[in-house]
C-alpha cells in the first residue's frame, strides 16, 4: 500500500534542463496547462454567441465575472478596476485547479506548497510595491494606524509588521494545507475501502460525503484566496 502522500509526487513527462535547472514538464505543469485551457474555454466558448438572454454556460461565465467584479468593487473600490483581470485570473486559476484535482487520477497543483507560495509571495510583493508607489514612505503608517495612542506603538508596530510579513505564508499555507489534507484524507479512506473488503462500503459512503465536502473546500479556498488578495490590495491603496 502506497503512502497517502505519494499522490503528491510529480512525474516528469517531458524532461527539460536549462542551465543546470530541471525545468521538466511534469504532471503539475500538465494540469496547469489543462486549467489554462479549461478556464479559457469556459470563458470564451460560453460567450461566443453572447446571447441577450444567457444560457447555462453563459450564465456561469457571466456570474463568475460579476462575482469577482463585485468582490473587487466592494473590497478595493473603483481604484481596484485595473486589478480586476488579475483577481479574476487568480480566482479562476485556483478554482479550476482545485476542482480539476477532484477528478480521479488528476493532479492537484494547488496541493504543492511551492505553487501556492509563489502566488502568495507574488501578491505580497505586488501589494507592497503598489502601496509604496502610491503612498511613498507614508505607506508605513499601515503599521501604525492614525488615532492609536502613541504609548501602544512599541506593542502595536511589531504586531502589525509581523502580521504583514506573515501574509504570504498564511495565504499560501491555507490553500496548500486545505488541498493536501483533503486529498490525503480521501486517499486514506480509499485505502480503508480496499483493505476492508465487503465492509469497505462504509468508507466508500464516507468518501462520497467527503467528495462533496472537498468540492466545497475547493470553491471556498479559491474564494478566500481571491478575497484576501482584494483585502491586501485595499490596504495598499487605502491604508486601512
Amino acid at each position: 500500500m502506497a503512502s497517502p502522500v505519494e499522490q503528491f509526487k510529480l512525474k516528469s513527462l517531458v524532461p527539460l534542463e536549462v542551465g543546470g535547472l530541471d525545468l521538466s514538464y511534469t504532471t503539475s505543469a500538465l494540469w496547469m496547462t489543462i486549467t489554462v485551457i479549461g478556464v479559457t474555454a469556459f470563458l470564451t466558448l460560453s460567450m461566443r454567441s453572447g446571447r441577450l438572454v444567457p444560457g447555462r454556460w453563459q450564465s456561469m461565465a457571466e456570474m463568475s465575472y460579476e462575482f469577482i467584479a463585485n468582490m473587487v468593487r466592494e473590497n478595493v473600490g473603483s481604484e481596484g478596476r485595473q486589478y480586476f483581470p488579475f483577481v479574476l485570473t487568480l480566482f479562476l486559476f485556483i478554482l479550476f485547479g482545485n476542482l480539476m484535482g477532484m477528478v480521479p487520477y488528476a493532479y492537484t497543483f494547488t496541493s504543492q506548497i511551492i505553487v501556492t507560495f509563489a502566488m502568495a509571495f507574488t501578491i505580497f510583493l505586488a501589494v507592497t510595491v503598489i502601496g509604496l508607489y502610491r503612498h511613498g514612505l507614508h505607506f508605513f503608517t499601515l503599521f501604525f494606524p492614525s488615532g492609536t495612542p502613541i504609548a501602544l506603538a512599541p506593542v502595536l508596530i511589531p504586531i502589525e509588521v509581523i502580521s504583514y510579513f506573515v501574509r504570504p505564508v498564511s495565504l499560501s499555507v491555507r490553500l496548500f494545507a486545505n488541498m493536501m489534507a483533503g486529498h490525503t484524507m480521501m486517499k486514506v479512506f480509499g485505502g480503508f475501502a480496499v483493505l476492508m473488503g465487503i465492509l469497505g462500503v462504509a468508507p466508500v459512503l464516507l468518501l462520497v460525503a467527503l467528495t462533496g465536502f472537498e468540492i466545497l473546500v475547493a470553491v471556498l479556498q479559491a474564494y478566500v484566496f481571491a478575497m484576501l488578495t482584494c483585502m491586501y490590495l485595499n490596504d495598499a491603496i487605502h491604508l486601512h
Binding site: L10, L16, L21, L23, T26, M32, T33, V115
Partner: peptide, 8 residues
C-alpha cells in the same frame, strides 16, 4: 521540483 513548477 521547485524550479520546474515555478517555471511552468
Amino acid at each position: 521540483t521547485y524550479p520546474s513548477q515555478i517555471f511552468w
